[in-house]
């Protein structure tokens, strides 16, 4: 099991505490390859893509339009 985590330094949380998940590019339960673009985050006016850190079965933790902070776990990838 691998967490899909919002990098701590993705944006300045002092300035903008929260962002949202703008898009999921795979459905919950999908098999995803390592490196696949999983999600797009929107933080104030900027968007950031989040890549799969490993291959596995996607378990979405934060749904579309859900709020995230640096360090948030937005999904888990189950292996095998």
């Amino acid at each position: 099991m691998t967490d899909v985590t919002v990098p701590e330094d993705l944006w300045d949380a002092n300035k903008t505490p929260e962002g949202i998940v703008a898009n999921w590019f795979y459905s919950d339960g999908a098999e995803v390859p390592e490196g696949a673009t999983l999600a797009e985050l929107m933080v104030e006016k900027s968007s950031f893509d989040i890549a799969a850190p490993a291959a596995g079965t996607l378990r979405i933790v934060v749904p579309k339009d859900g709020t995230v902070r640096p360090g948030s776990v937005i999904a888990r990838l189950e292996s095998g």
Partner: peptide, 9 residues
């Protein structure tokens, strides 16, 4: 390749 990927337009 898998086609379970959901892309935006």
């Amino acid at each position: 390749m898998s086609s379970n990927r959901q892309l935006t337009v």
